[in-house]
């Protein structure tokens, strides 16, 4: 039993790695996508909006498969030479792009929800555009996006197990090996890993939300 538990822990490291890598890259990339979609150059904005629509409108699992297999197939079938991804990096790239699109929508909602009067009040007080962003709107933006970001990040924890579709040995895949040997408890115990992780995140987001409760 100790051995099985140790191996489950080991496998959960993959879930955790995918989780943190996705956050690390998707949070800033989401900002880039958000600004791109708001660009004054309409073709770019249109292109990016379409891209976000496709990514949000198709299953993450499909995207993981495509990022992993398609570069190799293009090379074999058409001689097109684009870099291929390993098992982990393929999953990571798909996750980063997928979550960046979701985050960009959250940022957009946050930016749109800040009243125009806040910008105008800053302007008539002689502030520069960047002063208005950093000193006036940024905090309000963060406060507004924390709850939806929290939801999305909790979904990400559970989504990491999708990486098994391209044979990443994450925790559910590992537990499943025992199921096929007739042992059922490892599979159930994976739920505990997720519950603990999600529980910690819930506490963390609750704490941040309370910290920002001093203003409305």
């Amino acid at each position: 039993m100790d051995v099985i538990f140790a191996r489950l822990c080991e496998a959960f490291v993959i879930n955790c790695e995918l989780f943190f890598v996705t956050l690390l890259f998707a949070i800033p990339l989401g900002l880039v996508i958000c600004f791109g979609a708001r660009s004054k150059f309409k073709p770019l904005a249109w292109l990016i909006k379409t891209f976000v629509w496709v990514i949000r409108g198709t299953p993450l699992m499909l995207q993981v498969i495509i990022f992993f297999f398609v570069p190799g197939l293009l090379k074999v079938n058409y001689g097109i030479n684009i870099p291929t991804f390993g098992r982990f990096s393929g999953a990571a790239v798909a996750f980063v792009i997928n979550y960046a699109c979701y985050f960009s929508e959250i940022y957009r909602g946050g930016i749109d929800s800040i009243p125009k009067g806040q910008y105008e009040a800053g302007e008539v007080l002689g502030m520069t555009k960047s002063q208005i962003f950093f000193k006036v709107t940024l905090m309000q933006l963060i406060k507004r996006i924390i709850p939806p970001m929290g939801n999305e990040i909790i979904t990400l924890v559970k989504d990491t197990s999708l990486a098994r579709i391209i044979s990443n040995k994450e925790i559910i895949m590992m537990a499943n090996e025992y199921t096929s040997k007739g042992l059922i408890w490892p599979l159930f115990s994976t739920g505990l890993f997720f519950l603990v992780f999600v529980g910690a995140l819930t506490l963390l987001f609750g704490y941040i939300e309370r910290k920002m409760d001093y203003f409305r």
Partner: peptide, 21 residues
């Protein structure tokens, strides 16, 4: 323009105070 608008002050109908300050 940023400097020039300082000739004027503006009090808005909806106050527009910065909520976090």
């Amino acid at each position: 323009v940023r400097k020039k608008r300082l000739h004027f002050g503006m009090v808005f109908q909806s106050f527009n105070l910065f909520p976090q300050y």
